[in-house]
Simulated assay, not measured.
Amino acid sequence: MKGCKGHLLATVLLGCASTSWALESIHRLFETEESAPRPFSGVLLVAKGDKLLVSHHANWPENSAFEPIDKTQRFTVGAIARQITAALIMQEVDAGHLSLSHEVEEWLPEYQTHWQAKMPIRQLLSHSDGVFVSDWYQGLEGEVFAYENLGYNLAGDILESVTGKSYQELVDEVLQRCRMQTSTTYALDKPTAQSAKGFMELQPGELVPVLTGIPDDFIASSGVQASAMDLLSWNLCLHRGKLLSKQSYRQMITSSSLQPHRWGTLGHGFGVQISDQPVREYSQSGYVPGFISTLAYYPDFNISLIVLENVSWDPKDTQRAYYYHDKSRQALLAYLTRGAGRSIGQ
């Protein structure tokens, strides 16, 4: 593909010799990039606990608009933000301030005249609220998976009503608790050197900078910026029992609806995609203008996979758009399926 040559690549395989052997198929994704359907621009990490096993970052130096990228730079993570919103809701449940059976109108009385008013918070978090975005049809609540932003945007409003704090304040508190030092809510009007610039593919090979941000009303569903290293901290904070009670965490990772997905049918908890085949996997992906992200955690191995890109590739071809995300996941699953992941990196 034209434009692949000349990338600034930095791939590090860390750990013992068996680790390098086990993960070399991920490394080969970047060695054979000339045969890939499109180039890579972003960060990919594989870690066991907080120990990095694979660290890769790349960008295009021949394009002056692309600045150096590394694992500490912030990317807009799209739907991964929903894990943070769901965890904030569950913290209020743990504190006794909120119940998942509470209806929207109990905390947002202005919705009393809307059909959403009787919707319980549980269904907002599981995307089982019966909303079909294509025609705004209200389906069978609690029975149909409908992936949309409305539920989590309402959850953000409910959090503000319950706590008396802004969503941004609440996010900052949980980020600090999880030691996510560089993450923040999205603010395009306040760019810093830590924020990767996003680009959108208009047609194959034609990229333009993204100059508009996530609307304020969508922050709770899509508007968090995080670095790859901070998302690693998030995985360990959420999944290793540092953030929620055991009961609340269990509810987050319990499937309450089924989600059609390019990986196959997945269970869906609260901001978490759930799969038991071939190994247990908790994941989420994000796609917003300028950025694509994938975050996965394998609890039986304490292994994380993080892929962040600062180009939103044409979504009409999902296999191409998510090429590196899906190929690295497939390579990691192939290894973990053999059971060897429990000793990896030790």
Results as ranks from 00 to 15, higher is better:
residue 2 K to D: 12
residue 3 G to Q: 04
residue 6 G to K: 03
residue 9 L to W: 14
residue 15 G to Q: 03
residue 16 C to F: 03
residue 17 A to S: 11
residue 19 T to H: 05
residue 24 E to L: 01
residue 25 S to P: 08
residue 26 I to A: 03
residue 28 R to G: 05
residue 30 F to A: 01
residue 32 T to D: 15
residue 32 T to V: 03
residue 34 E to R: 15
residue 38 R to S: 09
residue 41 S to G: 05
residue 44 L to D: 07
residue 48 K to M: 00
residue 50 D to E: 12
residue 51 K to F: 06
residue 60 W to Y: 10
residue 62 E to P: 01
residue 66 F to Y: 04
residue 70 D to N: 15
residue 74 R to T: 05
residue 74 R to A: 09
residue 74 R to Y: 00
residue 76 T to C: 07
residue 79 A to R: 01
residue 79 A to C: 04
residue 83 Q to V: 07
residue 84 I to Y: 13
residue 92 E to Q: 15
residue 92 E to Y: 01
residue 94 D to K: 00
residue 95 A to W: 00
residue 101 S to G: 14
residue 102 H to L: 01
residue 102 H to I: 06
residue 106 E to W: 06
residue 106 E to R: 12
residue 108 L to Q: 01
residue 109 P to V: 09
residue 109 P to E: 01
residue 110 E to F: 08
residue 110 E to Y: 02
residue 111 Y to K: 09
residue 112 Q to T: 12
residue 117 A to M: 01
residue 117 A to S: 14
residue 132 F to Y: 11
residue 133 V to F: 11
residue 134 S to M: 02
residue 135 D to G: 01
residue 136 W to K: 09
residue 139 G to R: 13
residue 140 L to M: 07
residue 142 G to M: 03
residue 146 A to I: 00
residue 146 A to K: 12
residue 147 Y to F: 12
residue 149 N to G: 13
residue 151 G to K: 08
residue 153 N to S: 14
residue 155 A to C: 05
residue 155 A to Y: 02
residue 157 D to W: 14
residue 160 E to V: 12
residue 161 S to L: 00
residue 161 S to K: 13
residue 162 V to W: 05
residue 168 Q to W: 10
residue 169 E to I: 11
residue 172 D to A: 15
residue 176 Q to E: 10
residue 178 C to R: 02
residue 178 C to M: 02
residue 180 M to G: 08
residue 181 Q to I: 04
residue 182 T to Q: 09
residue 184 T to I: 12
residue 187 A to Q: 14
residue 190 K to F: 05
residue 191 P to E: 07
residue 195 S to R: 13
residue 197 K to N: 08
residue 202 L to V: 09
residue 205 G to V: 03
residue 205 G to H: 09
residue 208 V to M: 07
residue 212 T to I: 06
residue 214 I to P: 00
residue 217 D to E: 13
residue 219 I to K: 06
residue 221 S to P: 02
residue 221 S to G: 09
residue 221 S to N: 04
residue 223 G to E: 07
residue 226 A to Q: 05
residue 228 A to H: 02
residue 230 D to S: 05
residue 234 W to V: 10
residue 235 N to M: 09
residue 238 L to Q: 03
residue 241 G to K: 13
residue 243 L to I: 13
residue 244 L to Q: 10
residue 247 Q to V: 11
residue 249 Y to T: 10
residue 249 Y to A: 13
residue 255 S to K: 06
residue 256 S to V: 14
residue 257 S to M: 10
residue 258 L to F: 06
residue 264 G to P: 07
residue 264 G to M: 04
residue 264 G to F: 08
residue 265 T to P: 00
residue 265 T to F: 13
residue 266 L to K: 08
residue 269 G to K: 04
residue 269 G to C: 08
residue 269 G to H: 08
residue 277 Q to V: 14
residue 278 P to R: 03
residue 281 E to Q: 15
residue 282 Y to S: 09
residue 284 Q to D: 08
residue 291 F to L: 06
residue 292 I to L: 14
residue 292 I to R: 11
residue 293 S to M: 02
residue 299 P to C: 11
residue 299 P to R: 06
residue 305 L to T: 07
residue 307 V to I: 15
residue 308 L to F: 07
residue 309 E to N: 08
residue 310 N to E: 07
residue 311 V to I: 15
residue 315 P to V: 02
residue 317 D to Y: 01
residue 319 Q to H: 15
residue 320 R to W: 05
residue 323 Y to W: 06
residue 324 Y to I: 00
residue 329 R to D: 05
residue 329 R to Y: 04
residue 332 L to G: 08
residue 333 L to K: 12
residue 333 L to H: 08
residue 334 A to M: 12
residue 339 G to R: 10
residue 344 I to S: 11
residue 344 I to G: 03
